[in-house]
Simulated scan of single mutants.
Amino acid sequence: MNPKEIIARRIAQEFSDGMVVNLGFGIPNHSADFIPESVNVVLQAENGALRFGGTPTAQTSDPDLGNSGGMPITLLPGASTFDMRTSFAIIRGGHVDMTVLGALEVSENGDIANWLIPGVLSPGMGGAMDLLVGANKVIASIQHTDKKGNSKVLKQCKLPLSASGVVDMIITNLAVFIVSKDGLVLTEVAPGVSVEEVLEKTEANVIVADNVKEMVLA
């Protein structure tokens, strides 16, 4: 299982019945392919869709239907589509229970940088800043290290912030962290990953929970 699938599968375990969940582009959108069969979650795309499911096949794909990353989606019974103004009224009105966004960096106190690397072409901030302050719970999804092995879970973010102190949970391909008032708490590790490996590859200060569990990736 590749790192992105590990993260996407673990994200899907946070879905529960009746939740309105916004998914950002990239790995978060991929989590729609792993919704547990027993869970009736209402997924929202910031570009104007409510109640969608997994990726369609080439035969069932509709070019007019896409998620926040422009990839095809499957609308479920009872789904609706609408304009961007309505979508952001939902977000800014506090009607999104949880948002899951990709990140470039996250910090131990819940800061997130996910929109700009100075000097590198950026697609822009999109709706991230609205979601980070409008959603009731924020999950940051991120590969634990960069290509050189440097931690992306930091004491302080080095890139321009999208929002400060808003992240509640961090899901990486190695671990799950809860951002608490006391600091960053390690609660889960991926299959085959030890607590020691997570600590070695994490720049941030980490509090190890008394009972660290193995991620469920069903």
Results as ranks from 00 to 15, higher is better:
121 L>Y: 11
155 K>A: 06
134 G>H: 12
125 M>T: 11
152 K>L: 12
100 V>T: 06
106 V>E: 03
114 N>Y: 02
119 G>R: 02
129 M>L: 10
138 V>E: 11
133 V>T: 15
156 Q>N: 11
129 M>S: 14
133 V>I: 15
144 H>A: 05
106 V>Q: 07
138 V>T: 13
127 G>Y: 14
118 P>S: 02
109 N>M: 03
98 M>H: 06
113 A>S: 15
140 A>L: 08
167 V>E: 01
139 I>L: 07
110 G>R: 05
134 G>M: 11
159 L>Y: 01
94 G>L: 10
137 K>H: 14
113 A>L: 04
139 I>P: 09
130 D>P: 08
124 G>N: 07
104 L>G: 12
107 S>D: 09
101 L>E: 08
103 A>L: 04
151 S>T: 06
146 D>E: 10
130 D>F: 14
146 D>W: 01
168 D>G: 07
112 I>G: 07
107 S>F: 00
158 K>A: 10
128 A>G: 12
141 S>N: 03
114 N>K: 06
131 L>P: 14
97 D>G: 15
92 R>H: 12
109 N>E: 03
117 I>G: 01
115 W>V: 00
125 M>N: 09
112 I>Y: 08
145 T>S: 06
109 N>I: 14
126 G>D: 07
91 I>V: 15
116 L>Y: 02
102 G>S: 10
153 V>R: 03
118 P>L: 00
128 A>V: 08
144 H>N: 07
156 Q>Y: 01
94 G>M: 05
105 E>G: 09
138 V>F: 03
107 S>Q: 01
114 N>Q: 07
136 N>K: 15
127 G>F: 13
111 D>I: 01
128 A>Q: 10
111 D>F: 02
120 V>E: 06
135 A>C: 15
90 I>E: 08
130 D>N: 13
147 K>W: 07
103 A>H: 13
160 P>S: 12
164 S>E: 10
104 L>S: 08
164 S>F: 00
116 L>M: 14
123 P>A: 11
152 K>A: 00
124 G>Q: 07
159 L>T: 08
168 D>Q: 01
121 L>P: 08
154 L>I: 02
156 Q>W: 00
114 N>L: 11
137 K>W: 09
96 V>T: 14
97 D>A: 13
162 S>E: 09
113 A>H: 12
139 I>F: 03
126 G>W: 06
126 G>T: 08
101 L>D: 07
114 N>H: 02
116 L>W: 04
159 L>D: 12
126 G>M: 05
91 I>E: 13
168 D>S: 11
98 M>Q: 11
96 V>M: 05
101 L>C: 05
135 A>N: 10
95 H>D: 10
91 I>P: 12
163 A>H: 13
127 G>L: 11
92 R>N: 15
160 P>V: 06
148 K>W: 02
154 L>T: 05
157 C>I: 08
121 L>D: 09
113 A>P: 13
128 A>I: 00
132 L>Q: 10
105 E>M: 06
117 I>Q: 10
148 K>H: 09
131 L>A: 09
104 L>R: 09
131 L>Q: 15
168 D>V: 06
128 A>Y: 06
142 I>D: 14
100 V>L: 01
124 G>P: 03
100 V>E: 04
167 V>K: 06
121 L>C: 03
104 L>H: 09
152 K>T: 02
151 S>K: 05
142 I>E: 12
96 V>K: 05
111 D>S: 05
105 E>S: 04
